[in-house]
Amino acid sequence: MRTPYEERKHQEALRWVKGMEKRSSIVQRKSKVVQTTMNNWVPERVHKVVSRSVKQMIELSLTSSHYIYPIQVNDAWSLKEREEQVEARLKDYKRTAALEGAGTGAGGIVLGVADFPLLLSIKMKFLFDTARIYGFSVEDYEERLFVLHVFMLAFSSDEKRKEILRRVLNWEHEKEGVKDVDWKTLQLEYRDSIDFVKMLQLIPGFGAIVGAWANTKLLEQLAETAQNAYRLRIMGY
């Protein structure tokens, strides 16, 4: 029997699923076309940094404790208490991401390029913390794969979103067939999803404002995906 809070969050998660299953709006689809065109304007070294950073992030996520930091987790926490902890953690990470984005954005293209791996690290640390707060052991390889699928879902295109969503919602059945993550596909999806706003960060002066705003919004987008994914794992889809 769910509590009123659990029922409210379950319904919220189901609405989120419906939203994820819908095709992107025409504005978003037009933005995608613009992004694809603008990709040609982004310096090749930026693309290389993103590719290298994503590959390293996946390797660290699956094989090391790089993103595991000491946090206090109580197995007796209710869903509401767990989500209060996640929100507090998100607030801290958003502050860090905003400061980091503003600092690198102020430096133009040189520091703007450095922002990609730094922001990736912040996102993954947040995801690993979130998984543990919801009661899942990130020491397990399967749970680390799930974390990466949540990341992929947050930054996937229309073409990939439904496939990844299906895996996330049916993880107990799907995980046996998932042995690894295609980092090349992931880096392309991630790069395309953030290029439009992050490219503006490379503009000296203006980049500081965009950097702080973009990093905050991207982390909020990731947090919404993670919270709803874990709610449905706990309460059922």
Rank of each mutant, 00 (worst) to 15 (best):
I122R: 00
K179Q: 12
R161Y: 02
I209Y: 10
M1D: 13
Q72K: 13
D115T: 01
V178E: 00
A223S: 13
E87G: 04
A229G: 08
G108H: 08
D195E: 13
K9Q: 13
L118E: 09
E44I: 13
V34R: 12
K184Y: 03
G135H: 05
P4A: 00
K175E: 15
L232M: 06
R23Q: 12
E163V: 14
A88H: 14
V168D: 00
G211P: 09
T37K: 03
S78K: 12
L120M: 12
A97W: 08
R45K: 14
K198W: 15
L119P: 03
V73I: 12
L60R: 15
Q187I: 01
V168A: 05
K94H: 04
A226R: 04
F151N: 00
E224S: 12
Y67H: 00
R52Q: 11
Y93G: 08
E172A: 08
N170L: 10
F128V: 12
Y69Q: 03
T3Y: 11
A88F: 05
S121C: 02
E12L: 06
F116Y: 10
L232S: 14
V147H: 00
S78P: 06
G105K: 01
N74E: 04
I26Y: 09
L148H: 08
M1C: 11
L188A: 10
R161F: 03
T216Q: 10
H173S: 07
R8D: 09
D140P: 07
E220T: 07
S51W: 09
R52T: 09
G101M: 08
K162E: 11
I234F: 05
S53R: 13
L165Q: 13
D140N: 10
D140T: 10
S53F: 06
M38P: 05
L118M: 13
E59N: 11
M38W: 09
D129K: 11
A214W: 06
S24Y: 02
E224T: 07
L218R: 01
L99I: 05
K18P: 01
D115Y: 04
Y230G: 00
K80A: 12
K48Y: 02
T104W: 00
H149L: 15
G19L: 01
R167Q: 04
S25M: 07
L62C: 00
L202V: 09
S53N: 14
K32T: 03
R191E: 11
S64A: 12
W183V: 04
F146G: 01
L14I: 15
N39H: 02
P117N: 09
I122V: 08
V33F: 07
Q187P: 10
W16M: 09
S137C: 06
E59D: 15
E6D: 04
K30H: 07
R89M: 02
V17F: 00
D75K: 06
L153W: 02
S193M: 15
L202F: 10
F155P: 11
W213C: 07
T216R: 02
T130E: 08
Q85F: 02
R231W: 01
